[in-house]
């Protein structure tokens, strides 16, 4: 179904929102299955599905349960986390350019993760990896909100984001270049572009609790963001406390994005593109946009992860390459339309 026909269905009625939700859930389920079925080992459909539910067994069971299943689960969770945090940030800042990847939150999370790995902290205490990434993401998110809070304007946000991204990227490269491990420097691309190749259930258990906790926190912001969309005065008259919302946004984004980056690297543009595609379909109601953006983000990331395996099966093409190829032109288009609106 094309976006146009979806939008015809979705023109402002409750039922069509439900239809959109059903369609998105369906897309996520299909792409999750595709993620399980696509891989270099050419397995038959029936063979792979039965192996997925088998107990102990041969190599097919290992491939399905230990290699493909964790990859698909992480694609689902991380995509949802990125889509949701993008929608929440855009809603709070009332700025269409807010996105964890663009404004340096993902990059700072990568720096935290790399520091935890290279100092040996993550080897001594496994949870140090996602927690350090969370700290990096939290610090940069707080800094961004202070520098370019509501009313700070798109320019302040993007400038602060560019500065923080550049700083985090440079520091990450420096740490990896100075590592005694000869492979570390070659992994700069991974930390900046992200990949789900050869992830295991170890990574799922490390990241999933924090991602889910962060997403729950972000979901609670829906009503508040609805009120905020009416203007700050109206929100204040409804008894809303923006300070508390800001804290929830920072912590929720830090947990969801930080844990995602810790196990998959920084994947950009998902949080930018998804809310923008969905916003015209659901109307300007952040409380509706949040869950749909989570679904949309999951669908986009699962699709990208299937695509990297189809385009270059042997080469571990990075996810950020695909999301940027689609996202960056979209971003330029967005700036163009904003410029025209301001003129």
């Amino acid at each position: 179904m094309t976006a146009r026909s979806v939008s015809a269905f979705a023109s402002g009625r409750g039922l069509s929102i439900r239809l959109l939700t059903v369609l998105l859930v369906l897309a996520v389920v299909l792409l999750f299955c595709a993620s399980l079925l696509v891989g270099p080992a050419a397995l038959g459909l029936g063979e792979s599905l039965s192996a997925l539910f088998a107990g102990k067994g041969g190599p097919v069971v290992l491939v399905m349960q230990e290699i493909r299943l964790p990859r698909a689960i992480l694609g689902l969770l991380i995509g949802a986390a990125l889509g949701l945090s993008g929608a929440a940030m855009q809603g709070f800042l009332r700025n269409p350019l807010a996105e964890p990847g663009l404004i340096g939150v993902s990059g700072s999370a990568a720096l935290g993760a790399v520091l935890a790995l290279q100092t040996g902290l993550a080897a001594a205490f496994a949870l140090a990896l996602p927690l350090a990434a969370l700290a990096g993401a939290g610090l940069s998110a707080a800094l961004i909100l202070i520098l370019a809070g509501p009313g700070g304007g798109a320019l302040a946000l993007i400038l602060a984001g560019v500065a923080i991204s550049a700083l985090a990227g440079a520091a990450t490269s420096l740490v990896l270049n100075l590592s005694p491990n000869p492979f570390a420097a070659a992994e700069i691309v991974y930390w900046m572009m992200g990949s789900l190749a050869d992830r295991s259930f170890t990574h799922v258990w490390l990241a999933a609790p924090l991602i889910l906790a962060g997403m729950v926190a972000l979901m609670t912001l829906g009503r508040g963001l609805d009120a905020l969309s009416l203007g700050e005065d109206a929100a204040a008259s409804m008894g809303l406390r923006p300070g508390r919302m800001r804290l929830v946004l920072i912590l929720g984004t830090a947990a969801a994005v930080g844990a995602s980056v810790a196990v998959a690297g920084a994947i950009g543009f998902v949080g930018l593109v998804v809310p923008h595609i969905l916003r015209p379909l659901v109307g300007a109601r952040p409380s509706r946009l949040l869950p749909l953006s989570a679904l949309g983000g999951a669908a986009v990331l699962l699709a990208a992860d299937v695509a990297v395996r189809l385009i270059a099966p042997d080469r571990d093409l990075k996810l950020g390459v695909l999301t940027a190829l689609i996202g960056a032109p979209f971003f330029l288009h967005l700036i163009w339309t904003m410029r025209r609106a301001e003129a």
Binding site: A41, I67, G120, N181, F183, E187
Partner: peptide, 27 residues
């Protein structure tokens, strides 16, 4: 590079690998 899936499907009797370097790497 050999995808881990293909290694698992080949089911070798023995896997020869290297000692890890100090520091950490995803590789």
């Amino acid at each position: 590079n050999l995808a881990m899936e293909l290694l698992v499907m080949a089911g070798p009797d023995l896997v020869v690998t290297s000692k890890p370097y100090p520091g950490a790497s995803r590789s």
